[in-house]
Design a protein around this nucleic acid. Structure first.
Length: 669
DNA sequence: ACGGGTAGGACG
DNA sequence: TCGTCCTAC
């Protein structure tokens, strides 16, 4: 739901960058012969040619639309090339698109705060960069403005359609009499054009962009001229732009709220909203939404660009429409296993690449069944603490499913359980997701505080284990069987360290498994999120090309050098995947997240002997995961960052010693 | 019985 | 908090 935020007084320069038919471009880069042809990306072509999820602009010219079936697209455009989405584990696999999106983000993030809004959209706060440019190298002093900048659409500029358009744009960009805000916008437009060219050279992807004073307007603008163009929104143009702008096309108003505005208030354009007082809108839609509506009608939006390059959750799901609905626990389990397998791979990759761990596993399902006839009951989502390891995730997810199913079926289900007439339920959608993703805490002080007093940090490992085990009360969703089997995520690509993977035992189907399980599954942990740790920008040897050095004759050459640069980067990225040990060594310099409970500062000091470093070792495979849940929360967060990677390190040298010594600093701040 | 698969955010 | 609902691409 929209929430009103005060607009900051200081003018900001915000860009919204939107990749053009992104999935198509990704496929075209893979198969360059598709460039320039009407094409579309389709998934599941079994039924009516599959569903289109991205359509090239050439194909749009023939009337092909998203959400057509492949067959329909062929009808309106027989020569269309349909490319299939990659499939893995029997489901669509979007990872190539996600990765391609990451390429783009890493380029765009160079010039300012960057928010990855979706797989193919990014917001940028270019305020600082624009101010710097205006100070040090203002457009009015430029003798030449790059073609790409001149191709900008500047809203409100007279004679948009005229032949002298570029001349007009140049005059606007370089106008020394312009409003300060417009000068900043001009700088923003130049920076944005440069970034888009950089994206094109390094990724071969085109994008469109909007440049404005806030996110809402930037987003509106980026969609106004596509593909491969950019649109600038001077303040003076805002009212005119919004006045006739269809309300339903505003972000957040494409759904029920927009429909209500139309149906209940007769508001069809943003301008129509101006007649309503803030109080009236608040009465109708609540204080927050009312204020938000009142503001957006005036082009006001104070939302900040979140500095976030990484997703906040990972999910894997699949639908099973109509006749394909899942009707037995065995098929549900099969598909859950597939989904969990993918999810596990993705969170493990996140851990390796970004040093982040997910802490909550959630299962969603959609179902129809006996209870749906009378009541429109929904299958409840369920969540539990996330344990790393594919087998564990699969096991936990299936337990969550069973818990949800019992609830869904209600008392009716309990009665007929185990009878010869199974429930007539059917699952039409399944998804699992991993959320509460936090950067691995890099300090160790809270562990020391926990053991402080009774436990010296360099005490023998045995005693540490004893402490763990004494206080252990298993609470994990599954009975914590002795986890001596070490789990590691599958990472075929990274052959150096993480390739070992030991599959969990398959979870046997137990219809009547532990009804009270769910009560224990709920994770009451309230861990304070630590600062996300962004992947280091390993942009070695990027082609640096200024706007003026970008004549079209050079594009071909630059693209090819950029292409080989990319490959170099990939290789060096692989090499850069350090060993676990190296990871810890590099991390122990980092900062300790803040925490509240005190008194243990002396114990911290106590271990700061030997130049602030101490060695600590223990036998990893003798610590049961379930004990961790019983530790104080701030300890849990910290411990998990140690134990999990440690187990993984252990598998690397499987058969060898199981004791690993870690070195860490006790410095805190 | 469908755009499918993902994401993010607000609310109670 | 968790679970639900809404929205968007």
């Amino acid at each position: 739901m929209p929430v009103a935020r005060p607009e900051s007084s200081h003018p900001r320069i915000i860009a919204h960058v939107d990749m053009d038919c992104f999935y198509v471009q990704v496929e075209q880069r893979k198969k360059p012969e598709l460039r320039g042809l009407p094409s579309a990306v389709v998934q599941y072509n079994e039924w009516k040619g599959g569903g289109l999820i991205a359509v090239s602009y050439e194909a749009r010219g023939f009337g092909v639309k998203r959400s057509m079936r492949g067959d329909e697209a062929k009808q309106v455009c027989p020569q269309i090339h349909l490319v299939q989405v990659p499939v893995a584990r029997g489901k669509a696999d979007l990872s190539t698109y996600r990765n391609a999106g990451s390429e783009v983000v890493s380029i765009l993030a160079r010039k300012g705060r960057c928010e990855r809004a979706s797989i193919d959209e990014v917001y940028l706060d270019l305020t600082d960069a624009a101010e710097a440019m205006l100070r040090e190298n203002p457009p009015e002093s430029l003798e030449a403005v790059h073609e790409e900048v001149l191709k900008s659409h500047v809203l409100g500029l007279a004679n948009e359609d005229e032949i002298d358009k570029k001349e007009n744009v140049k005059r606007w960009m370089c106008n020394s009499d312009a409003d300060h805000r417009d000068k900043l916008l001009a700088c923003g437009a130049i920076i944005t054009a440069e970034l888009r060219m950089q994206v094109l050279m390094e990724t071969e992807f085109t994008c469109s962009a909007g440049v404005a004073h806030n996110k809402m307007l930037a987003k509106l603008a980026s969609a106004m001229n596509k593909p491969a163009q950019q649109t600038v929104v001077p303040s003076s143009s805002v009212n005119g732009l919004l006045y006739s702008f269809p309300i339903k096309k505003m972000k957040q108003l494409g759904g029920k709220l927009g429909t209500s505005l139309q149906g209940d208030l007769g508001v069809n354009t943003v301008g129509d909203l101006l007649q309503f007082s803030e109080e009236k809108l608040q009465d109708l839609y609540g204080v927050k939404t009312g204020t938000w509506l009142w503001n957006i009608a005036r082009g006001i939006s104070g939302e900040e660009v979140q500095g976030r390059l990484l997703p906040k959750s990972h999910g894997s799901g699949k639908s099973f429409p109509g006749p394909r609905a899942l009707k037995t626990a065995a098929t549900v389990q099969h598909w859950l296993n597939q989904l969990c397998d993918e999810l596990s791979e993705r969170i493990c990759r996140d851990l390796e690449e970004n040093k982040r761990t997910a802490h909550t596993l959630t299962l969603h399902a959609t179902a129809y069944g006996p209870s749906e006839r009378d009541s429109h009951k929904k299958f409840p989502s369920k969540s539990c603490p996330l344990r790393y390891g594919t087998g564990k995730i699969q096991e936990d997810a299936f337990n969550l499913f069973q818990a949800g199913l019992r609830e869904y079926l209600g008392s009716y289900g309990a009665k007929t359980q185990g009878s010869q007439h199974p429930e007539r339920w059917a699952i039409t959608g399944l998804s699992v997701s991993a959320s509460k993703i936090m950067a691995i805490p890099s300090g160790t002080c809270s562990i020391m505080k926990y053991f402080g007093g009774e436990q010296r940090c360099d005490a023998p490992a045995r005693q540490v284990e004893a402490n763990f085990i004494q206080e252990a009360v298993p609470t994990s969703p599954s009975d914590s069987k002795n986890c001596t089997e070490l789990e590691c995520c599958e990472r075929v690509e990274l052959t150096d360290n993480y390739s070992d993977y030991i599959e969990d035992n398959k979870v046997p189907m137990e219809e009547d498994k532990n009804l009270s399980l769910l009560g224990h599954e709920v994770d009451s942990s309230t861990k304070e999120a630590s600062q996300p740790h962004f992947p280091s920008e390993s942009c070695s040897g990027k082609t640096k090309v200024s706007a003026q050095e970008f004549p079209s004759e050079d594009v071909r050459h630059q693209l090819s050098t950029a292409r080989s640069k990319r490959k170099e980067q990939k290789n060096s990225a692989l090499k850069d995947q350090g060993t676990i040990l190296r990871f810890f060594k590099s991390n122990d310099q980092a900062q300790e997240p803040t925490r509240s409970q005190g008194d243990g500062s002396n114990s911290c000091n106590a271990i700061q002997n030997g130049g602030g470093r101490a060695a600590w070792s223990y036998k990893v495979d003798e610590i049961d995961e379930s004990v961790i849940a019983e530790l104080p929360e701030e300890i849990q967060a910290e411990l998990e960052s140690w134990i999990r990677p440690q187990k993984r390190a252990n598998t690397v040298k499987r058969g060898g010693a199981t004791t690993i010594a870690h070195y860490f600093s006790a410095n805190q701040k």
